[in-house]
Design a protein around this nucleic acid. Structure first.
Lengths: 247, 247
DNA sequence: GAGTTGCGTTCCAGTGGGAGGAACGGACGC
DNA sequence: GCGTCCGTTCCTCCCACTGGAACGCAACTC
């Protein structure tokens, strides 16, 4: 669908790092005639997805684009509601606390509160990751119903990211069962070879947002005792966040 | 531009509260034939702006929509960087701290850290507000260059929201000058008749994000002494956030 | 101040991509 | 097994969009 591709292309051009773009910039990037781009831009401004940039004769993303992002994040403002819990997890553990949400068949980092220590984990907000590797992803998978999990496994291949990544479906099913029983997921060097993490998931209703909160940091500090302590913390925080989301 | 309107309509339909929508839902809402909606949806899935919803045969916003929202918020993750400062402001004042960004000719609440007191201010993340009423908006206006401010005033009407709203351009220019000299903006019952606030703005480069942080709460607690104290706090926090953003 | 460059914007005729009604096929649930 | 509602596909007609070209403007250079 040509017109849809053009609209998407124009919008996504603004995610390339430049906040303000001109007609010519976009036309060059998409290899389209300026007139076509200009018409598309004008129409997008009318819908509020874009705005004119004050006085420089350029365009930038508009208020409705913010709405889209917030809606994509799950509930009206999943991040805002989760923040106090992330803060608490950070304070109790000293490690970085993160929030992820399921989008399609992968997860997206929606936010983090960085740890207090010199050597600490820092994730990139907006970055995407697969579900089958690492505690955050697995905590989300553990929220899937049996048929959902089966259709996920049928559609995706469990590509290894490190030597520790689980690539066997049967083993993954068993590990997920443990996650459900214990209330949190733990991983050591599965997605990033030098990182460890614990995470607990949440799911709002049948069609609501699905996500997870994690405590993560350098592998050395995620030994048996720390994992058990932090695991209890994230499980409790996720349960309280869920209780707040369903109200 | 019909095709652009259709794409925008389809995307924005997902901001109406329902996270998962079907072809028929959208066709009914936009009053379009199902076939047209179906083609549009399929094309949007291909671009990543939408995804199929796991097993229910519906559609929801995709990973690229999250990217859009983050890009619209300003820098890659303005909120994530501002959070520690919001937290600090909340802890020091006990009142709610908020972050707003300029989008078009209005501002959008990107985040908040709620106050610790029983009677406190709570804003809605994603909500929009005009610039000419309230401390947060005025702190943003104070970042405008002289020609930018003039073109803003020429294009908008200073609609009063309460009895305290400044509706006179000349008076607004004078107040903004005070804001620039003092380093923070203060307001009492301008946007919400029962609320007071102090705010300080920031601006990254020529084409970068423009926004403000505020401390806000019930009018009774925003007397002369508190305003001076809190004003110093937000001004300092905004300066430090700015320093971090430009690196 | 004339010349140049690069910008956003406008114009217009020709055409091919999308409109949209109708029909299909699968999933429920009564 | 029947009715219903869903997403999906099909196919022809037509008009909305295309895109090359020209325009007006502002910011430079010489």
């Amino acid at each position: 669908m040509k017109s849809v591709d053009r609209v998407s292309g124009v919008l996504l051009a603004f995610t390339g790092g430049h906040l303000v773009l001109g007609v010519t910039d976009i036309a060059r990037e998409l290899d389209l005639p300026k007139s076509a781009v200009h018409r598309t831009l004008s129409a997008l401004v009318a819908t509020g997805l874009l705005t004119r940039d004050g006085d420089t004769s350029g365009y930038r993303l508009g208020p409705r684009a913010v709405d889209l992002g917030l809606a994509a994040g799950g509930s009206p403002d999943l991040l805002a509601r989760a923040l106090p819990f992330l803060q608490g997890l950070r304070d109790e553990s000293g490690e970085t606390a993160t929030l992820s949400a399921l989008i399609g068949v992968e997860r997206v980092y929606l936010g983090q509160v960085e740890g207090a220590q010199d050597v600490r984990m820092t994730i990139e907000v907006g970055a995407r990751a697969v579900l089958h590797a690492g505690a955050s992803g697995r905590a989300i998978l553990a929220q899937f119903t049996a048929p959902e999990l089966e259709s996920y496994l049928a559609r995706t291949t469990l590509t290894p990211l490190t030597e520790g990544t689980i690539t066997d479906g049967t083993r993954l099913r068993r590990v997920l069962q443990e996650v459900r029983e214990r209330g949190y997921a733990a991983s050591r060097g599965e997605r990033d070879a030098s990182a460890g993490a614990v995470a607990a998931g949440f799911r709002v209703g049948v069609a609501g947002p699905i996500g997870s909160m994690s405590i993560c940091g350098p592998l050395q500090r995620f030994n048996g005792a720390a994992v058990a302590t932090y695991g209890g913390l994230v499980a409790a925080a996720a349960a309280r966040l869920l209780a707040q989301l369903v109200t």
